Amino acid sequence: EKTLKIVADSEEEAEALAKELAEKYNLEVTIERNPEEEGKYVITIKIKP
């Protein structure tokens, strides 16, 4: 299993990107607040072998 993390500037941007990735590529995608940067969100994508 591989994990890729993407940082987005807004929750709306994160949700839109996560939804597109999940639907288009059938990936497991989660969104959470970035504890290191206020106002940023981390999109985590898990790629199963």
Rank of each mutant, 00 (worst) to 15 (best):
E1H: 08
E1G: 11
E1D: 13
E1I: 10
E1C: 13
K2C: 09
K2T: 14
K2S: 08
T3P: 06
T3H: 09
L4D: 03
L4Y: 11
L4V: 14
L4C: 15
K5S: 10
K5M: 12
K5R: 13
K5V: 14
K5F: 13
K5W: 13
K5I: 14
K5A: 06
K5C: 14
I6C: 06
I6G: 01
I6T: 01
I6Q: 02
V7M: 13
V7Q: 12
V7W: 12
V7K: 13
V7T: 12
A8H: 01
A8R: 05
A8V: 15
A8Q: 02
A8G: 02
A8P: 00
A8M: 15
A8F: 15
A8S: 05
D9W: 11
D9Q: 11
D9F: 11
D9R: 07
D9L: 06
D9V: 03
S10E: 01
S10I: 01
S10A: 01
E11C: 08
E11P: 08
E11M: 15
E11S: 08
E12P: 04
E12V: 09
E12N: 06
E12I: 06
E13M: 09
E13S: 07
E13L: 11
E13N: 04
E13Q: 10
E13T: 05
A14F: 01
A14I: 02
A14M: 03
A14R: 00
A14V: 02
A14H: 00
E15F: 14
E15H: 13
E15N: 15
E15R: 15
E15K: 14
A16E: 09
A16G: 06
A16H: 08
A16V: 10
A16F: 09
A16L: 13
L17T: 03
L17Q: 02
L17I: 15
L17A: 03
L17W: 12
L17Y: 07
L17G: 01
A18D: 00
A18S: 04
K19R: 11
K19W: 04
K19D: 02
K19I: 06
K19H: 07
E20D: 07
E20G: 08
E20Q: 12
L21V: 03
A22G: 11
A22W: 13
A22D: 02
A22R: 15
A22F: 11
A22H: 11
E23H: 07
E23P: 02
E23L: 10
E23R: 14
K24Q: 06
K24V: 04
K24P: 01
Y25I: 02
Y25V: 03
Y25R: 02
Y25P: 04
Y25S: 03
Y25N: 04
N26A: 08
N26D: 12
L27W: 15
L27A: 15
L27I: 11
L27K: 04
L27N: 06
E28W: 03
E28H: 09
E28D: 11
E28Q: 09
V29T: 04
V29F: 11
V29C: 10
V29M: 03
V29N: 00
T30Y: 09
T30P: 00
T30M: 11
I31G: 00
I31V: 11
I31Y: 07
I31N: 00
I31F: 06
I31C: 03
I31W: 13
I31P: 00
E32R: 07
E32Q: 10
E32C: 08
E32F: 04
E32S: 12
R33F: 08
R33E: 11
R33G: 05
N34M: 13
N34I: 14
N34S: 14
N34E: 08
N34A: 12
N34Y: 13
P35F: 12
P35T: 10
E36D: 15
E36R: 11
E37R: 07
E37F: 14
E37P: 05
E37I: 12
E38F: 05
E38H: 11
E38L: 05
E38D: 11
E38G: 12
E38V: 04
G39W: 05
G39A: 02
G39F: 05
G39K: 03
G39T: 03
G39M: 03
K40S: 10
K40C: 05
K40A: 07
K40I: 07
K40Y: 05
Y41R: 02
Y41L: 05
Y41T: 03
Y41P: 02
Y41A: 02
V42W: 12
V42S: 03
I43A: 01
I43H: 00
I43R: 00
I43M: 02
I43W: 01
I43Y: 01
I43K: 00
I43V: 13
I43T: 01
T44S: 07
T44E: 03
T44N: 06
T44Q: 04
T44M: 05
T44W: 03
T44K: 05
T44D: 01
T44V: 14
I45M: 02
I45W: 01
I45E: 01
I45T: 02
I45A: 08
I45D: 00
K46H: 14
K46A: 08
K46C: 04
I47H: 05
I47N: 05
I47K: 05
I47Y: 14
I47L: 15
K48I: 12
P49H: 15
P49A: 14
P49R: 10
P49N: 15
P49C: 09
P49M: 09
P49E: 08
P49Y: 09
